[in-house]
Each structure stands twice: as structure tokens, then as C-alpha cells.
Write a protein that binds this DNA or RNA. Sequence first.
RNA 1: UGGGGCGUAGCCAAGUGGUAAGGCAGCGGAUUUUGAUUCCGCCAUACGGAGGUUCGAAUCCUCCCGCCCCAGCCA
Length: 561
Amino acid sequence: MTRETAAPEPGRDFIRDIIDRDIAAGRNSEVVTRFPPEPNGYLHIGHAKAICLNFGVAQEYGGRCHLRFDDTNPVKEEQEYIDAIKRDVRWLGFDWGTHLHYASDYFERLYDWAEHLINAGRAYVDDLPAEEMRMMRGTLTEPGRNSPYRDRSIAENLDLFRRMREGEFPNGARVLRAKIDMAAGNINLRDPVLYRILHAEHPRTGAKWCIYPTYDFAHGQSDAIEGVSHSLCTLEFEDHRPLYDWLIENLPVPSRPRQYEFARLNLNFTVLSKRFLTQLVSQGRVSGWDDPRMPTLAALRRRGVPPAAIRDFVRSVGVARANSTVDIAMFEHAIREALNRIAQRRMAVLRPLRILIDNYPPGVSEELEAVNNPEDPACGRRRIPFGRELYIEQDDFIEDPPKGFYRLSPGREVRLRYGYFVTCRDAVKNAAGEITDLICTYDPATRGGNAPDGRKVRATLHWVSAAHAARAEIRLYDPLFNRPDPGAAGDFFADLNPNSLDVLTESRLEPALADAVVGEAVQFERQGYFCADLDSAPNHLVFNRTVGLRDSWAKARGGAG
RNA sequence: UGGGGCGUAGCCAAGUGGUAAGGCAGCGGAUUUUGAUUCCGCCAUACGGAGGUUCGAAUCCUCCCGCCCCAGCCA
């Protein structure tokens, strides 16, 4: 739906270079990737990068991408998250076809492979309590020490491991460890835990298991089972690659996947830590995972961000190996770019100031024609009621205007968009000296917005007819944090922006907006892109501001908007 | 003082020995019935630093500096 815009170039990066080489070298007959979320929270914009990369690459190379839940830790995972993740990936525009998988689908095979390792003398059951195991692991600069249980016989290991599975032991009593090298510089190779005892209900396998494979033992093997050719993950797993490879090499797996790491996405003024986002939700600092201020896909959707904007943004950011923090302005740019093309224009007055057209006949109204979207003539036109009493934006009138301000002020003439030229004759004030109304006159000859005598005005204002306007609540959002690097001073919560949500309750909309479809983007002229919120009802309209329009006037006068 | 990575403009990011793409932001200007959009122009003698190799180095070598990740029975 993006008009004639040429298909966006896929974007080149080191991952695609690697795939090109692998194909040229005949290493892979097909490209198979996977997006492997753990269902312990909602997907956010950072995940979008991984999703677009994995699904995008598969599409470009005519391969496939699986959606695989990495559900190996039942104490943190929930069905609600599984459902939400599927919904969000689909919404982002990707299709896993028949390839919806779960690491838990492979628990039986993984178990067999664990015994295989035991039989090969490459894994053992360790009785060390977690605390002691930690102490014996050594430090970053000192090697670890072998567990006293490291040299148990294969038979004893097998017996113990089977009894672990049978549920004979309590949580934490024993683990299965790979026998690699306690002196390895890479700590992941110091006899990593492969299985732990967890008497917990699993969202999918229920009570069938009481031992669960760790990420390291499940991930690579799942890749191999599914025939994944390129297992793409973020940088922090780089140190795990030697273990990933060790397991693949020591197990009778059906294929040879390879892991490649890329830098995760970071955004300024934003936190993309599942742990922290979970706290925001559980502590009620936001209304939920889909609170429009959240960086989650569910929240972006509710806020009105189209999936195409997220895809374009992710593509513009690129894929590399250097840690980086992208300016949130780049994301906003992608949103505006997408919305400018598709959003129909409407007029809405956020903070109303009533004006009376003194020389306009009372009790009369007329309809004026407006363009729905100047970027897309196919969107047609609509009629807007005009009358003697109107609302304009409070910001569009200043009694004593500063230099550079060319909107309305006493004695000045401006255009009401698609309407008439009006001149302000007087500002009516209340006892407190606040302006309550403006008295204006209009020029009947300027109907539609042009003066036959060629007279020009400097400004065009949006407006709404008081007699026909719909009332609405409008929610304006600002970043959740008031510093670009939240948490840098030690406490994320201390950096929360207390003004991240501004609720306007007196806003007035042109009548057509009463029929706005929830979630559908619309541009409020001169203001920004908005959409009706989930909370909106016919008798109580609620709109979210997705993103504001660029505002060089606000910028020129120093920010405050 | 262990292991693994990464340093190209304010922010992302191409570049893989032949003389620094592109985007965002910013700054000028044109058009404009949205101070929007669109359009035009400007914005790294310079690639973390210092040496070296070479006719030629962001790209190769050496040393140095800085930043990130790893000591979960989380992923």
C-alpha cells in the first residue's frame, strides 16, 4: 500500500555477506533461520530487529523462518506471552507458515542426547549445591576446580540422571553438567549445567517433566533438529558459541547449524530490558504491556505506529557488530514517513479557544470542502461544517505576538483552512484577565481560502465548528524517561518522566472524526498523527497522539510546545 | 593480571589496498491554503592514537588507548 515507492532494498550487512558466501561455497542448500523468543514477556522494538532480520533474510533467500519458543524455564514462562508474541510477530508482517515450534517439543530427544553424552563420558551428575558450584567455578582470572563428583562412573551417572527425571530429588539437589574444562578461559566451558531439577508446571508440557534443559543444551540442538542453517543471535551469546559448537559436535544431531551474532538495538530515552518493562507493568507505573508509552510492539500498535514504519526503521538502522544507541528521532522519522502517505487529514482542536465571527449570520451553517489527503488524491474530499462560532487552537492566538509569530493576534488577518480569511477584532477576557473568546470578522469573498483580490495571509489555522464539534479526550505522550540514557545514574525509576502522559479532556473534533476506526491513523492537521484508542467509545472519544508533526516554529522559539 | 568482541561526523552506517556511500539530526534556501510534506544546497583533508609496510592504507603489520560482554541450576 506504499504507492510506487520502489521495493526497499533489502539492505546489506555482514550477515547477508556470510550467507552469500555460504551459498557460493555450497555449504547450505537452503537458508533456514528462526526467531526464538522466550515467552516470559512481551516483544518490544528491539525484538523487531531480530524478527525483521530472521524473517527478512529467509524471504530474500527463498528459505524459511521458524517461530520457536525457547520455553525451557517453566518458572518464568506463561501462555499469555506465547499468545502475545504470536500476535505481535504476525502484526509486524511475518508468517512462519507451518513452522511454529517449541523447544519443549524436543524435550524427549534432548533427554536422550543427554544420556548420549553421559554414555560418551562427556557429562556427569553433580551433587554440589549451587553455592559451592559457584565458588568452584573460579573467577574471571582464576581457573575453576573440578567437582568431586566429576569422575563418577557412567553407570552411576545414568542411574542418577534417570532418577532426577523420575522426580526423586528436590529442586537444586543435583544437575547434569557437561565435562569440558574447568580451567577454560571461557567460563561457559567450565563444565556448564545442562539440566536442572525444577518441579514446576510447564505451560505446554504440564507436569510431565521435573528436569529441564538449560538454554545452552536446548538452543543449538533445537536449531539442528529444525535444520536451521544460520542461527542469528545477539552479541552476548558470542561466548556461548564454543559451547554451541561443542554440543553439536558431540551429539548425533541431524544437521550442522552455525551461530552468528549481531548487536542488539538500543534507543535513547528508552529502556528495552524485559526485566525492567515487567516491573513497570507489575508495579502499575504504566497501564499495561500495551500502554502507548511502552516500547513494546503491542503498545506501538495501540499508539498507532504502522508495522511498515517499524520495518523501515529497522532496515534503516542496519545490522552490525558494534554496540550502538540509535536516536529515537530516527524512529519518529520512519513513523512520520509511513503515516504521511497513508493518514487522512482531519481538523481537531486540542486546546480550544472560542471565536465568534461577528459578521457571520447567526443560526446559519454551511459546508466547506476539504481534501482528505494531499499525498493521495484517491482519498477524495469531504465536507466540513462552518458557522458563526468556532474553536481554534489556543496556541494560535497571542495578544502581544513575539517577532516571528505570524498566526492570529488583534487586528491581524489569517486564513481558516478551507474556510475564510478572518481578522481578529477583539479579545474578551474574564475577571482574572484570561482570554475567553475572540471576536473576529470574516471576508465572505474568501470562501474556500483564497482572496479574489490576491491578498495574502501569513498563516492558515485549523478550526472546528462549535455547533458541530465532537468532544474528545486526547492523550499526548512524551518519552517515558527524561534522560537519553535512563538508568545511567543507577536507578531507572528515578529517571522516569513524570510528564510522559498528558490527557486533554476539552478537545473538539470535526464531525467526521466521530467515526474514526480504532487504531487507524489520521493526521490532525498542523498537530500530528493520531488514532482512536482502544478505550474510545461513541459517547466518549479517545485519541492517542502517535507522533507530532515536525514543528520548526516550536523549535525556533526554543522547544516548549 | 583470564576469555570474547567493538572503535568511521552529534546519532546509526557503507567501505574488504586506489584516494571517505547513504540515512537521522542540524544549518541555509525554494515551493506551500498544514510553520507539515516536497525540492535544492551545506555538513569527516578525515576513519580511537602512535609507529611501520606500500607508489598508494579506514582497509595490511606492531604497539598503545577506550568501550562492551562473560564468574545463573536465566535466556
